[in-house]
Design a protein around this nucleic acid. Structure first.
Lengths: 138, 138
DNA sequence: ATTACTGCAAAGCATTTGCAGACTG
DNA sequence: CAGTCTGCAAATGCTTTGCAGTAAT
């Protein structure tokens, strides 16, 4: 078991065991997690716990900007990740559904020129689709 | 009422009144439509009709590549649009939820260099978020 | 003490599925 | 005629909500 304390706690959110665990789990996740995946992790250390609590806490974190909710094309579940100062995009495999983080963001530098009509840009979401190395070989 | 015949009918899909109407509706839509919005349009001309038929036909069209399903961040509904040779992206307003089509795609030219690890790119999805002119003035 | 969080169970809602009948080619 | 589509109703599955009890400040 790893030490779970986070350096700082987001303002305006009451600290509980479950929520500490939630942030820890997301912080160490290699990919965005669904509510049920987060719940499964919490249950290991903090039973009892309920899915509805996870959803309610997610809602709080999202409202504070700590967590970002992603809805991936052709996935029915929503997934969640920590809001990072340097955001990531993912390549999603149509074969195995795995998500591969990408470092490069092609949108950043060309955004301003894209938007006319007084649209005030606050952020963006980009997903790449295709087949990962394993799935494309089959 | 406008003449509704489409120039060509997608191969491998049985032609019915409902489905002709579905494509017509999507062809003339200014934005991607949800299944329920499509259903509402169909009902005007072809009652009776049912939502489940719309979903089943959408599935067929998607499988043939005629229609593309989009899942927009922070919208709970999926929306659908005709698959166009020149794809579009949308700016989604956090205020009024309206979707504004954008002509420019910043991803196209820089895609190849982004993907390592043998990931075979088949497509992408990009959404811009923010506030439209009306909503940002409030 | 007051306010907010939690578990449980039930409700909500978009989407899917089963089935019998109707339509397409 | 065979195979597919359709409407209706019921089921599914993720997410939300109500409520009574518990924990946090």
């Amino acid at each position: 078991m790893i030490h779970e304390n986070l350096e700082s706690w987001p303002a305006g959110i009451i600290k509980t065991k479950h929520r500490e665990r939630m942030l820890f789990v997301l912080k160490n996740a290699a990919k965005p997690l669904s509510a049920m995946e987060i719940w499964a992790e919490i249950k290991k250390n903090n039973p009892p716990s309920s899915l509805s609590t996870v959803y309610r806490s997610l809602e709080q974190f999202i409202k504070k900007g700590v967590i970002t909710k992603l809805t991936i094309m052709n996935h029915e579940l929503a997934v969640y990740e920590l809001t990072r100062s340097q955001h990531k995009h993912y390549a999603v495999c149509w074969g195995c559904q795995k998500m591969f983080p990408m470092e490069y963001c092609p949108v950043e530098q060309s955004l301003p020129e894209m938007i006319g009509d007084g649209f005030q840009v606050k952020g963006h979401n980009l997903e790449i689709y295709g087949y990962c190395r394993e799935c494309s070989q089959q």
